[in-house]
Design a protein around this nucleic acid. Structure first.
Lengths: 239, 239
DNA sequence: AGAAAGCGGTACGACAACGTACAGAGATCT
DNA sequence: AGATCTCTGTACGTTGTCGTACCGCTTTCT
């Protein structure tokens, strides 16, 4: 069903210089990422990292009372499991597949080995981590100052940027979990966007109809994050 | 006035192995950090990094309309300027001295040189960065789910953990800027804490009277961050 | 075709935080 | 000592979001 091409579409892998790419490639295992799969649980020691291609994974914190909040979104621009090379081995977060698709899996030892060569792989991973930091910081800002409407716009745009299509399979309940708001809060916000002709919603499907329209309505947080990703992870192989 | 001992009290510097410490020490310049000083502005290219000893610095994002929100707090446990070694050179944040005191300043080139040796300095800085990431993530969570009262408790405890004394020179206006809330919102929250006998407030002075009491009232976010810092940056020199 | 389950739309009282404004208390300056 | 300025306490109407509940529309299953 899916073209094999999709497996090639992880940005981090695609910008690696040939030499590094060749070393890593034999160890990359394509895997399916079904909706809702918990890639790792808070505190889990990681055996693998994942390079999403057509899937999206959310990093979230789950509170003692079960409520949750999204910290960051990772898609085909990034990697799941930065704690491995940052030295901590674990994080107090959960990683959940938010949109089903594929990813490349890589053994933790191979990644660490590459990272400790202190070459292009390390530089690239650190730059990605800095971009991720910006996303987390901006999530904090957005949670503090912006309305659910604006946050939904930000969330949709960030998600679309990390997917090959303009459609997303997601219930409002799941989005509410990500944003850490009521399910009916998402309904209200989504209806406004639908009435404005920006998206179309229906039983677990969101389709973005008017991307520029969303960009007009979104708060500055989206732009800050987007610019930072573009700046830190350009398409050139001159990392 | 201040004991010279205070200059020694940066955690990152203090846990460095002798060899690395000896290499860096000649370049460490003690500097004063006056209240309100902007260490770096959003987008600034950094010439130095700072290791606070008796000062506290806030990382915050300033919105287009002038409102702000704190992303993280850095004190004697950390370093200001991680963007330097992460590879991005700049961040879309501002760093402001939140509590006056001293810090060690280090030339950017020296730090980069040390970092790229890929030895203990690199490992330590990356672990610190991961701890900082947790603090940012938890700030996002706290902004979403917890009351001003709880956030003030978290903020006070995080600040006290990064200072040698149990007193803080801070107006409610400044705290409000950090938390991204109304000034009078801070007044109300602070009064509750004062009525409970946990703190004493007065014209730019906060004194913590009952730390355990604050810890009882704080949300889980504080503990998550504290445990992560303790785990990632233990006192032993076996980094 | 009919039943069951999942998902989305709507309603309503409660409440925390907001914006704004003003007055009194404490510090600082001349 | 008195004037000035800064900081804190308080008030009030407004608003966004919450918690909760219920109903109806799709989709899926039997």
């Amino acid at each position: 069903m899916e073209s094999e091409q999709h497996f090639k579409e992880n940005h981090l892998l695609s910008v690696l210089p040939e030499a590094e790419r060749a070393r890593v490639e034999p160890y990359l295992v394509p895997v399916e990422m079904p909706l809702g799969q918990v890639v790792y649980e808070s505190g889990d020691r990681l055996d693998h990292v994942y390079f999403p291609t057509t899937s999206i994974v959310s990093l979230l914190y789950v509170m003692e009372d079960g409520a949750s909040a999204e910290i960051a979104i990772v898609g085909n621009e990034g990697i799941i499991g930065i704690a491995l090379f940052m030295g901590g081995e674990t994080t107090p977060n959960r990683a959940v597949v938010q949109s089903a698709g594929q990813a490349y899996r890589l053994d933790a030892r191979i990644l660490k080995e590459e990272f400790h060569r202190a070459g292009p792989v390390q530089r690239l991973l650190l730059r990605y981590t800095q971009a991720l930091i910006t996303q987390m910081a901006q999530t904090a800002v957005c949670n503090r100052h912006h309305s659910i409407d604006q946050q939904l716009c930000r969330w949709l745009l960030l998600s679309m940027d990390r997917l090959p299509s303009n459609e997303l399979k997601m219930t409002q309940e799941l989005i509410a979990n990500m944003l850490g708001v009521r399910r009916s809060g998402v309904t209200e916000a989504a209806l406004k966007l639908q009435d404005a002709g920006l998206i179309r919603y229906g039983h677990g499907h969101i389709e973005v109809l008017d991307r520029p329209g969303l960009e007009k309505r979104v708060c500055e947080c989206y732009g800050v994050v987007k610019r930072e990703f573009d700046r830190l992870l350009p398409d050139l192989r001159a990392i």
